[in-house]
Amino acid sequence: MIELQGVHKAFGPKRVLNGIDLTVPTGESMVIIGGSGTGKSVLIKCILGLIRHDAGQILLDGEDVTKAERDAFLARFGMLFQGGALFDSLTVWQNVAFRLLRGSLKRPKDEAREIAIEKLRRVGLKPDVADLFPAELSGGMQKRVGLARAIAAEPEIIFFDEPTTGLDPIMSGVINDLIREIVVEMGATAMTITHDMTSVRAIADKVAMLHDGVIQWTGPVSQLDESGDPYLDQFIHGRAEGPIEAVR
């Protein structure tokens, strides 16, 4: 279980997270929505320790993440980055098996390659993609490779940062379905940040809306349309008028 208690983060005078309280139970798929620049990515990076939060506590199964043993802590996570963040200098299979080729999870090269190809197959890519370089792949294929890399070491918790950004609606649907299937199949805890409402409805068990540095609303995805929260309503219906100020 991931718990955030009064998490604050500011960059200079700009306060991005202003007391975040959020709980993500084990095995649940939580989607965080919110406008651009509201700190969704910062939130995920704070949990992973990529950015150090200024105040508050982030607990993973009751343990403060800042005090956890770093390697063991990170070994529990997988992450799909917005742009894929694949390593240009490595082939697709080496990207997928990155964690399996070094560190505490190191396996023999042949076994790591086999696992990588199996994970590529799981995300709908053929084995002949394995020896290509990321630059030779389309955006959708890069996302799939990123997804395969995120699940390669079978993590307990998977983060998805804008998984469908830049993809056409059909490919977005494919990625959404894949994420949902994989999360259910692995029994993993998932945390996704997105502003794609189709993704929200396809992936989420629960939804949290981040606005003005705090969680404005949280609840099951089934209650999304009947929340009565004016901020959430404006966001999910994409209205320019409402409590959220739209910069024109």
């Binding site: 770093r70 390697d71 990170l74 980055f81 964690r99």
Partner: peptide
């Protein structure tokens, strides 16, 4: 990619 490296321990 640097963030990705960190998340991959």
């Amino acid at each position: 990619q640097i963030d990705a490296l960190v998340t991959l321990s």
